[in-house]
Design a protein around this nucleic acid. Sequence first.
DNA 1: GTCTATAGCTAGATAGAC
DNA 2: GTCTATCTAGCTATAGAC
Lengths: 199, 199
Amino acid sequence: MDDETGDSVPPDAKAEIAEAIGAALAKHGYERLTTAKIAAEYDKSEAGLYYHYDSKDEMIAAFLDGAAAAQAAELTDDDREDSETRLRAACERLFVAPGDERAGLHVAVMELLSHAPYNETLRDPLRELEGATLDALADIIREGVGDGTFREVDPDATAAFLLAAADGSTGFHVALEMDVGADLRRGWSAYVDSLLADG
Amino acid sequence: MDDETGDSVPPDAKAEIAEAIGAALAKHGYERLTTAKIAAEYDKSEAGLYYHYDSKDEMIAAFLDGAAAAQAAELTDDDREDSETRLRAACERLFVAPGDERAGLHVAVMELLSHAPYNETLRDPLRELEGATLDALADIIREGVGDGTFREVDPDATAAFLLAAADGSTGFHVALEMDVGADLRRGWSAYVDSLLADG
DNA sequence: GTCTATAGCTAGATAGAC
DNA sequence: GTCTATCTAGCTATAGAC
């Protein structure tokens, strides 16, 4: 979990930069994210960033790699719960509301996704991030189908549909702040209900 | 449908600019959309755009107003079909695949949505666009619940969940081109199945 | 490894002729 | 109404001192 020495080490420069990028992305989004704003969240200068990375997008790509790993870990964490509980917990995490501390970052990821067609550097890390989430959801659903919690639904189709709904809610619910919070919750909750066996 | 004279008139400057914006947005997205690229799709110069609008975002806002009206019209068009057919047709329209002629524009709208928190000029037109789609879906579902085609589902919750899924599919399916086309179709199709009465 | 200073570029918007 | 030319601002990335 630490470096080769096994000792607890202070965060290295790259980890500090990743943290700065996360904070700056959440505050400003991607288009308005400048290296000056990243440096403002970092305790060093703008030029210092370029000692560790060759371009701004490489820094963001590194941040996204970390985010994919963290996302996979969090959705896989609660192995001891039953699959309905795990799926509902995943939905609580993935459907964010305006004001949630993750809201800014979700909007920024949405913006990054929309830039993927034009940005080769970001494409692969974003595929990892979305793929990790998709896999985690499919695993939960597959387990629930296997043990009889859920009906015989297609785990991949169900996971894709559910992740799409969570991602898409970020646009009109979070970014536009349209008054649909209660509708969305009833929507995903009813969807999970509809997956249950015997229902 | 035309101007006060009742005659068929040539498209005015604003309509031509809106068309140019649609084409340029689909090709380049929003961040990379410059006034030079809009002018390239227009048959006039860059400065000419500023005779009709005060800023780039005002041009885009006018384009979005038109898109909201067009979206509402297309989803409301087939009044004579039964509600299951209408809902499936709406899904076919809203879930686009990479390569679809609407793909570029869907990604651009996703990008615009992600900028809404930072851009007051775009926020209202985007709310109109998403609101028009949401209303059209809810109307279809409400009608289907009323005539017994669908179960007693909540039309607003169902519409919000379905629009979220369609919007969100644009990210990983269209922008990232992840191989989830078949999964997504099975996903939304099974969801519509689950709304049917007697199912 | 980190800094200050700046090169080099590109964008949105305007001025003024026609 | 439409043009060409240009102003001004803000960005990424680098040079060179320390």
